[in-house]
Design a protein around this nucleic acid. Structure first.
Length: 558
RNA sequence: UGGGGUGUCGCCAAGCGGUAAGGCAGCGGCUUUUGGUGCCGCCAUUCCCAGGUUCGAAUCCUGGCACCCCAGCCA
């Protein structure tokens, strides 16, 4: 049960960083994680967080947390706080290096003036539709804007008046003056600034009516912060020439380098902020932290540990190839962590009464049960045992073949951490449903099996007199198909209607009554669960089932 | 002949001219008071295809093919 420190896997970015350091290009490596506060962080962001913070950590460098807050329309403080919370939960710190792109609004403005003075930026009055027409198409070059050749003086005056609020939204933009015929559309005089009146920015309030675009803001922010390696996802690859153009043409203090890697795609879920936002706003899930969501807050509420998520990010690697990771890998990561650390508990999710006919009516034994079968250092707890017990309905069948390792009529089974019992009688109600089992309890079988009789297997149980009622929520994959929306056209039609099954009548062993929010356990033979962090009731969320080779073998029920 | 990328086992992924790591999944077996865990074994004569260079190619060259991204005053 030891956690060997996992030495980070190498990847092409680590190689570049290591080469740069060896060549003396930088004193230290400096990265940044730059979320836009327009939604909650998801598992895909974790990949980037682990990459950026992990890289800095391993090379003795620094990683900043910087909010890319250049579009106040979509951003707000709730998201800022949630993101900080999630990054910290994952186990990363930014010390005093919490930045906002909006911290640099005035620097950005001054740099824009520098571009204007160099004849490299101009104020354009084409409206959005005209601009699209002038931009050309993927295969045809664009045409120069009629405003392209304004003098620096004229541009300076206009830009200053834009800032002063003299012009309405959409009437003017500041554009870079690069090349309208470039094969790379990002270089066809991209917009640098747009006018936005009347929005209250969560950091700068109403100070600005001018907001810079990402492509312009990002390289400058990186340069100001001394970022050496600016890591982003593949879709920004053809923005790199613009990133470099900006750095090359401005008197910025440092020269950061952008490197792209492929984003994470996970089977049976979606990792696009637009879709996650829709799942929440359209009520397909109960909020950003719904345990079915691939958000960090959802995974957290589901019972995932930071260690498991970091391990997952290490295991998937960093490359530039398109990928779609199987859910089984993520599940293996959390099972691996929880198997080692989660205390074991007995919980009956779908109770069936068992009466031990030969057991004293009033007796109660407190049996010892280890918290962990392979790790005695975790200690043990007491399990009350008495005449009436609950077992799970799925653990009894009137008849079954020899492969069935649970209780059958006339058969013997061991109660986990307790005695061996034999089912003598099946009681049914008028409808023919089994409502009770009358069993014989074999005394003296705490440590050994009864002589000459075959015990089919081991099942879990809870004392009916001592068990605590609880609600158990069984979660399954949010979508029915590996790539939601791929074939159906709309990912929503691939939603799994059975992604949540509530079991309101579960009975848990007594010590679980004091479980704290987010505390994780293995419910033996069922899976890993954690106490829900919302509400006051005794509610447990299933993180993941145990691996089940028997069910896989074809569900050969009997 | 728009521009930019990617193609190594079912899914990831090492490999950097010297003869295909590892993980997940899968399949056998052993252990087991969790059909769990642990342990052992099996799982790419072949690297998108076709030519070429070389004593030797997944790695170099040439030509194809497939897939992904780009025409927001989003990031």
């Amino acid at each position: 049960m030891h956690d060997e420190p996992r030495s980070p896997k190498s990847n092409f970015i680590r190689q570049i960083v290591s080469d740069d350091l060896a060549a003396g290009k930088h004193r230290i490596v400096h990265t940044r994680f730059p979320p836009e506060p327009n939604g909650y962080l998801h598992i895909g962001h974790a990949k980037s967080i682990v990459l950026n913070f992990g890289l800095a950590e391993d090379f003795g460098g620094l990683c900043n947390l910087r909010f890319d807050d250049t579009n106040p329309h979509k951003e707000n403080m709730e998201f800022v706080e949630a993101i900080k919370n999630d990054v910290a939960w994952l186990g990363f710190g930014w010390d005093d290096r919490l930045y906002f792109a909006s911290d640099y609004f005035s620097n950005l403005y001054d740099y824009a003036l520098e571009l204007i003075d160099k004849g490299l930026a101009y104020v354009c009055e084409l409206d959005a539709e005209q601009m699209r027409e002038y931009r050309g198409t993927l295969k045809e070059p664009g045409r120069d804007s009629p405003y392209r050749n304004r003098t620096p003086a004229e541009n300076r005056d206009l830009f200053q008046r834009m800032r002063a609020g003299e012009f309405p939204d959409g009437s003017k933009v500041l554009r870079a003056r690069i090349d309208m015929a470039s094969g790379n559309i990002n270089l066809r005089d991209p917009v640098l600034y747009r006018i936005r009146h009347g929005v209250i920015h969560h950091q700068t309030g109403a100070e600005w009516c001018l907001y810079p675009m990402y492509d312009y803001t990002h390289p400058i922010s990186d340069a100001i912060e001394g970022v050496t390696h600016s890591l982003c996802t593949l879709e920004f690859e053809d923005h790199r020439p613009l990133y470099d153009w900006t750095i090359d043409n401005l008197s910025v203090p440092t020269r950061p380098r952008q490197i792209e890697f492929s984003r994470l795609n996970l089977e049976y879920t979606v990792t696009s902020k637009r879709k996650l936002t829709e799942l929440v706003s359209e009520g397909h899930v109960n909020g950003w932290d719904d345990p079915r969501m691939p958000t960090l807050s959802g995974l957290r509420r589901r019972g995932y540990t930071p260690a498991a998520i970091r391990d997952f990010c290490e295991r998937i690697g960093i490359t530039k190839s398109e990928n779609r990771i199987e859910m089984q890998l993520l599940e293996d990561c959390i099972r691996d962590d929880l198997n080692k650390h989660a205390p074991r508990r007995l919980v009956v999710i779908d109770p069936l009464k068992v009466v031990l006919t030969n057991y004293d009516d009033t007796a109660c034994e407190w049996l010892h049960a280890p918290h962990h079968p392979q790790d005695a250092s975790l200690g043990q707890r007491q399990l009350p045992f008495c005449k009436e017990l609950w077992i799970d309905r799925a653990d009894f069948q009137e008849t079954a073949n020899k492969k069935y390792k649970r209780l059958v009529s006339g058969g013997l089974v061991r109660l986990r951490n307790a005695y061996v019992i034999r089912c003598d009688e099946v009681i049914k109600d008028d409808a023919g449903e089994i409502i009770e089992l009358r069993c014989h309890c074999y005394p003296g079988t705490l440590e050994t099996n009864p002589d000459g009789e075959k015990v089919r297997g081991v099942i879990h149980w809870v004392s009916a007199r001592h068990g605590i009622p609880a609600e158990v929520r069984l979660y399954d994959r949010l979508f029915n198909v590996p790539n939601p929306g791929k074939d159906s056209g709309d990912y929503r039609t691939d939603l799994n209607p059975d992604s949540l099954a509530i079991r309101p009548n579960a009975v848990v062993e007594p010590c679980l009554a004091s479980a704290t929010p987010e505390q994780r356990f293995q419910f033996e033979r069922e899976g890993y669960f954690c106490r829900d962090s919302k509400g006051t009731g005794l509610v447990f969320n299933r993180t993941v089932t145990l691996r089940d080779t028997w069910a896989k073998a074809g569900d050969s029920e009997a």
